[in-house]
Design a protein around this nucleic acid. Structure first.
Length: 279
DNA sequence: TGAAATGTTAACGA
DNA sequence: ATCGTTAACATTTC
């Protein structure tokens, strides 16, 4: 299940596989894969994606967890936007992967598949103005990658007197962080997930800023490459410090890792390393 | 078998 | 208004 780093790896992969090359053929495997700017499935997804045949991919950019493919098509510039949600990914290969929903045959390149077992993800194709309007309307907060969010900016974005953990997930405060990232970042920053942002001192904000960047850099390094394995998949190895490690020894102090569910989402932390108030 | 899963969003209640 | 929880989306895995 993808967070920012997985989307960023997909961006790099699509750059390598596809940028500068044209699309020979497009196929829709799952009719509900293409949505409009209201996120409703379009009436004719075949016709929609057929607009990309003969198009050349110019650039791939990322905003939060959205991937934005800029294409020059016979009818003019269009943007293909995707959201991976829980299980989406782009892969390449001759055979349809599990969960295949659409595919793009790249001239002098691979066949690129949009695969998404749980089918929460989507593709959206429209003019640059329409797509950028859609992205703007999401109201995303500042990007934590590639440049770190400065401690001061972080403090203003997260300002609150309730628990910090759910705040980190709020895309309108900081863009791109997910549920795994929240636990990992707070562990790295030695901040308890229940800590109220209003009680963090300057050093706490500095640690949080550094921890966000360090976590993203770490996951990007681990997941770089053509095949991204999500944790839920068979054979996946858990590369995280505390996420999914309830009861296992803390990597710093051997205290058993704690777990709780809030708002339906699990949180993991070390009760010795992470103190409320951040110190 | 039931529960839970790395995302988002609408609906509801305090 | 704002916060937090719950259900829903669809499917797989433990």
């Amino acid at each position: 299940m993808p967070e920012l780093p997985e989307v960023e790896v997909a961006r790099r992969n699509l750059e390598r596989w596809w940028v500068g090359r044209s699309v020979q053929e497009v196929a829709v495997v799952d009719e509900k894969v293409v949505v409009d700017t209201a996120r409703a499935p379009v009436a004719d997804p075949y016709a929609a994606l057929a607009r990309l045949e003969g198009a050349t991919l110019r650039a791939v950019t990322r905003r939060a967890k959205l991937l934005r493919l800029e294409l020059d098509t016979p009818e003019g510039p269009l943007v293909l936007l995707s959201h991976f949600k829980m299980t989406g990914k782009f892969v390449h290969g001759d055979e349809a992967p599990r969960g295949a929903r659409a595919c793009f045959r790249v001239a002098r390149g691979p066949v690129v598949w949009f695969a998404d077992v749980r089918r929460f993800g989507w593709l959206m194709l429209d003019t640059p103005a329409a797509i950028d309007g859609f992205i703007e309307a999401q109201g995303y907060g500042p990007e934590p990658w590639p440049d770190p969010i400065a401690p001061d900016v972080l403090r203003h974005a997260l300002q609150s007197s309730s628990a910090i953990k759910p705040r980190l997930l709020d895309q309108s405060r900081i863009a791109g962080l997910g549920n795994i990232a929240a636990s990992e970042i707070l562990f790295r920053a030695r901040i308890h997930p229940h800590t109220a942002p209003s009680t963090l001192d300057d050093d706490g904000w500095r640690r949080l800023s550094a921890a966000i960047h360090a976590h993203l850099a770490f996951v990007l390094e681990v997941e770089e490459g053509d095949e991204i394995q999500y944790l839920s998949e068979a054979d996946a190895v858990n590369p995280f410090l505390v996420y999914g490690r309830e009861g296992a020894p803390c990597p710093e102090c051997d205290t058993p890792i704690e777990r709780e569910r809030t708002g339906g989402r699990p949180t993991f932390w070390c009760s010795r390393c992470q103190i409320e108030g951040g110190l």
